[in-house]
Computed example of a mutant assay.
Amino acid sequence: MTDHAHDLARVQEATERLLSAAAALDNAALAEPSRLPGWTRGHVLAHIARNADALVNVLEGRPMYVSPEARDADIERDAPRPLEAHLTDLRDSAARFDAAGSAPGDWNRTVELRNGVTDVAARLPFRRWAELGLHLVDLGAGYELEDLPVEFTERETEFLARRFLGRADVPPTSLSDGTRTWRTGLEAPEPEVAVTGTPADLLGWLAGRRDGAALEVKGGGLPALPPL
């Protein structure tokens, strides 16, 4: 069972790591490209802040975003701000998310995210943790996938493997980091492809952050994954 209170505490820790990394930058660095195509570091920070508010909307029963266009416009609007404005926004939006997540509520209820995706409310804190963890790496400010907490890497790998499970455009695939195993892709009695690698390399491939070149693949080529 998902422990939302545990995950809210992990969100607070991840927020502090992000704030420390961002505070070490300067205005010039914010205008430089991040590791996400087409986005500067300022875009990444703006997205993280707006995502916190979007998840507050979900927790409080409102649409996550007014529209895809409004989401993109808000990020473009906020990206060029100076560092101090970003830091203040990140702190304030994180506090709003923490307050909404700490309020009494039915954590077993179904909530709707973007593009018609639904989930259980109790998993929203982990989704926020995922945003903070992966985008900290995307910032290109000294953190790598190898630096993320072991618990996060294991859970996000499992989450993403399940996300692609049953997809007809992904062959039946087994994943292993040498300790744990997962299944993804089209469901079948036996996997066609076996993919093995370090926890960071497996997560990077599933999350679209690495090309999978460091993975060992047996039974065929490395499957092409749909975009997240």
Rank of each mutant, 00 (worst) to 15 (best):
P125G: 01
V56Q: 08
R41A: 01
L30H: 01
L87R: 06
G204C: 13
T88Q: 14
A70G: 05
G142K: 15
A31S: 12
P227S: 14
A31K: 07
V150A: 15
R81H: 09
L124H: 05
M64H: 02
L113E: 11
T110A: 07
R81D: 10
R10M: 08
T153N: 03
V150E: 15
L186D: 02
E187R: 13
L132A: 03
S174V: 12
H135F: 08
Q12V: 05
F159Y: 12
G142W: 10
A99T: 12
A29K: 08
T198Y: 08
A224G: 04
N115S: 11
G133H: 03
G42Y: 01
A99Y: 08
R210S: 11
V195M: 00
A21W: 09
A9N: 13
P37N: 15
E60G: 00
G208S: 01
A31W: 08
L59S: 02
A9S: 11
G140Y: 09
P227E: 15
R41E: 01
S67M: 05
L124N: 01
T181A: 06
R91A: 02
N108T: 06
A29L: 12
G219K: 08
S174L: 13
V195P: 04
V170A: 04
P191W: 02
G105L: 12
V56E: 13
G133C: 12
L25D: 10
L148H: 01
H135E: 10
P63F: 14
A9R: 14
E13K: 03
A73D: 06
R167D: 11
E84R: 11
V120W: 02
R155Y: 11
A85Y: 09
E190S: 08
D119P: 09
D3P: 13
A168I: 12
L55S: 03
R109K: 07
E192V: 06
G212T: 05
N108L: 08
A207H: 01
D72Y: 10
A79Y: 02
W129K: 06
V195L: 04
R162P: 02
R183I: 05
S93H: 13
N57T: 12
V117F: 10
R96W: 15
V217F: 05
D169F: 13
R109T: 07
D98I: 11
R163C: 05
D53M: 03
F164M: 06
E192N: 07
E76K: 15
E76S: 10
Y143F: 14
G185P: 00
L45Q: 00
G185E: 00
A85H: 08
R96A: 06
